[in-house]
Design a binder for these strands. Structure first.
Lengths: 213, 213
DNA sequence: GTTGTTAACTTAACAATGTTAAGTAAATTA
DNA sequence: TAATTTACTTAACATTGTTAAGTTAACAAC
């Protein structure tokens, strides 16, 4: 009943209300299984109201992902305090996996769902800001490890190294999320798999005299 | 117009006709974007005819995946001829990535799409058959490398090792398939990423005196 | 204070989708 | 020749994302 001009702040509040409701549903039942009408009902609006704030379902999804990317970066922030760069890298890996496996449906939305690629300029997040950009955090740690002379002598490209570490952790996490129920494979313990992957990454990337403590 | 009792063989032929048409469409435009009506039109049947052979869209998807899993195992078969087990493992990794990146939509269907888990007993493929089971191929090579005493002394669990190698390659391939268009990341060359991942896996898993040739 | 105008909504409606129900026609059987 | 079965088809349904067409309240202008 109450249509009146809203302030910028009120609009923003409704926007995040939609995002939070949608996230909760997407996360618990998967993106495809949740309808716009359901999201709307959850916050006592009509489905069409959502379209006043997001051009379509995918834009809504992208907005949710944006705020989840921020959540990932935030959850990794405290590992940045570790002074030893190799230990910090190790801790970031553990933190990343913890995020993935405690929020599997967030993780699926962020990294495993097909999405039309988007401009970083259109994101609400700032690239290369350590508070908001988890990839930048990873790349920074990699650079620090490199600066400390801990990588093997043939490794110089921080992006390449970062992407390889990311791929290793992502491989374990995404197989766990998507395939761990598949009875074809006799899955080892997920913590064993994570641990071995980290060990392999460290042994494979670091000089030989650098231990994992 | 022509309804007449069909032989088992004719039924099977129509089944694979449906599978092939569906695969072609799924692969070129993605599973979600293809409708049952489209698949049917492609082979000049009505949409409902498909339901005489597959209980629903997902069952059709699963049948396609089954035959793609066979294709993967088949495409890796020739690497099994390599006598040196370490080289064989390396070649399997390259073969796996080649399959993933030349058939990205097959790969997405097989390993990246959410599916309700299925009994191995319901599959048309035989588990632990080297002709049909790519995971068994990998595990066998891992066992051979282990038997040759090439792994580090603390590594004994063939499943754990196989799953870690798989995760490493899957990580690189799946990030490439799902995220390579994402402008947030300055992606390195995919062949560099694959090469480094294999190098890291080898260095991380093998004894130190074992080279990659 | 009536009359627009605008903002924030709603209900109706649309086309498309997966799927099911209800035919239909040819072959086989009785 | 009649009945049944098989292999299909066309209709129909409920649900989806999305758009069009209102509706109602606040505010501005005269």
């Amino acid at each position: 009943m109450p249509p009146k001009p809203k302030t910028q702040i009120e609009r923003q509040q409704l926007r995040t209300l939609i995002i939070d409701a949608a996230r909760e549903l997407f996360v618990s039942r998967g993106v495809a299984a949740v309808t716009m009408r359901e999201i709307a009902k959850r916050i006592n609006y009509s489905a069409t109201s959502i379209y006043l704030h997001f051009t379509d379902k995918e834009a809504l999804l992208r907005a949710i992902c944006d705020s989840d990317f921020l959540a990932l970066a935030t959850s990794l922030k405290n590992t940045l305090l570790i002074t030893n760069p190799v230990e910090r890298l190790h801790a970031m890996g553990r933190g990343y996996a913890a995020f993935a496996l405690t929020h599997p449906n967030h993780y699926r939305m962020m990294f495993m769902t097909e999405r039309t690629p988007c401009d970083p300029t259109e994101s609400s997040l700032q690239q290369n800001n350590a508070e908001q950009d988890a990839y930048f955090q990873l790349k920074s740690v990699v650079s620090d490890v490199h600066a400390a002379g801990c990588f093997r002598s043939d490794l110089h490209d921080a992006d390449l190294i970062a992407q390889t570490i990311w791929a290793g952790m992502h491989g374990v996490c995404s197989l766990q999320i998507n395939m761990s129920e598949d009875k074809w494979i006799q899955w080892s313990n997920i913590s064993d798999r994570l641990q071995l992957m980290q060990q392999v990454m460290m042994r494979g990337l670091l000089r030989e005299n650098i231990g994992l403590n």
